[in-house]
């Protein structure tokens, strides 16, 4: 037995030492070649990084990205952390650097955290664009901007004030206290509240861990603990149906308004029943599609700094301001139009 183990160890050592040195010769140069800038023969490889997988929002974005990849004839890689985690995002970017891709399109969980890795990618000749949430400006060429934090915050706050007639108490349900862009939205909401709507008062801010069931429990507790709260503002997508269900079960549909950032499909039922008033979101599928178009254009040198317009084929032409490609204003899904969308 002992001899057998020794033998195995030796074999293992030979295999390990045998495969390692020979590899760099074949691997490294081709890596340099592919990152140096896609030659005409090889299709571009675009790596698409969501904040987290298993999130319906990014699934919708991916749907658009894949459509664009087909339109452009590029290879699309889709991978991300299973939970939103800045360190895991870095790890994935670092591995893509090793793999050698042409462009990375990233939705950044955390601006400073990911920028370190994205800069490194740029140093290796990989083009970087961001979408959904930006990195630091020096870590990417373009940001496909679906809406600024101010744009989102203002839209939500304005809608809340409109529904309550400018005065009243409201509460916010968020995913977690540490999620990067939600913090920015909260700040924008607070600022808009202070500047324009002195009559509006935020009574509570609760995290729901990005879980619908927990959002339901939180919303119920908020409504019972603060009987004067007249509106629930939900800034993560599972919280919108969760809060709507809570209002419905409390028998206060109509008295307590529900608005939030969410996907049309998850909210159709409540919007039609009149529980949820407005769901605000951009056209996520288009965001994914535009991002891949922009990524390919950057890699091919068609989208350069100084551009004022970007034509994304069948999708249309988009405005470019500075280094932001603008998708357009956030969209309001209401009873009247929600049936036209399927994502």
């Amino acid at each position: 037995m002992k001899r057998l183990l020794t033998f195995l160890t030796v074999v293992a050592a030979i295999v390990v030492s045998g495969c390692k040195p020979s590899a760099p010769d074949s691997g490294a140069p081709s890596g340099a070649a592919s990152t140096a800038g896609g030659s005409a023969a090889k299709p571009l490889t675009i790596a698409f990084l969501p904040k987290s997988k298993g999130n319906a929002y990014f699934i919708a974005a991916r749907q658009g990205a894949e459509q664009a990849a087909k339109e452009l004839g590029v290879k699309l890689l889709y991978d991300g952390p299973t939970e939103p985690d800045p360190a895991k995002q870095n790890e994935i970017v670092e591995t893509w650097i090793t793999r050698g891709v042409d462009v990375i399109a990233a939705a950044c969980e955390n601006r400073e955290g990911i920028s370190t890795a994205l800069r490194k990618a740029q140093a290796h000749g990989i083009k970087v664009v961001t979408f959904d949430a930006d990195a630091l400006p020096d870590a990417r060429s373009f940001f496909v901007n679906q809406a600024t934090p101010e744009g989102i915050g203002n839209a939500l706050m304005d809608e809340a004030a409109r529904l309550l007639g400018g005065t009243g108490e409201y509460a916010i349900i968020t995913a977690s206290l540490t999620a990067g862009n939600m913090i920015e939205w909260q700040k924008a909401i607070e600022k808009r509240n202070a500047e324009k709507y002195p009559g509006m008062k935020r009574m509570a801010l609760r995290p729901c861990d990005d879980l619908k069931d927990k959002a339901f429990a939180e919303a119920t507790a908020i409504l019972n603990a603060n009987p004067n709260v007249r509106l629930l503002m939900n800034i993560c997508s599972p919280a919108v149906p969760g809060a709507a269900e809570a209002v419905k079960q409390a028998g206060r549909a109509g008295q307590v308004k529900v608005i939030g950032l969410g996907l049309p499909n998850e909210n159709k039922r409540y919007v039609k029943e009149g529980v949820t008033d407005t769901v605000i979101l951009w056209r996520v599928v288009d965001l994914g599609r535009l991002t891949v178009h922009a990524a390919a254009a950057v890699a091919r040198g068609e989208l350069k700094p100084g551009a004022t317009e970007f034509s994304a084929g069948a999708l249309g032409t988009f405005k470019v301001i500075g280094d932001n490609v603008l998708l357009g204003e956030p969209f309001k899904f209401t009873k009247d139009n929600i049936d036209q969308f399927d994502f």
Binding site: G54, L211, K212
Partner: peptide
């Protein structure tokens, strides 16, 4: 609830 969240 009226629908099932797979993260439940």
């Amino acid at each position: 609830f009226a629908d099932v969240d797979p993260k439940t």
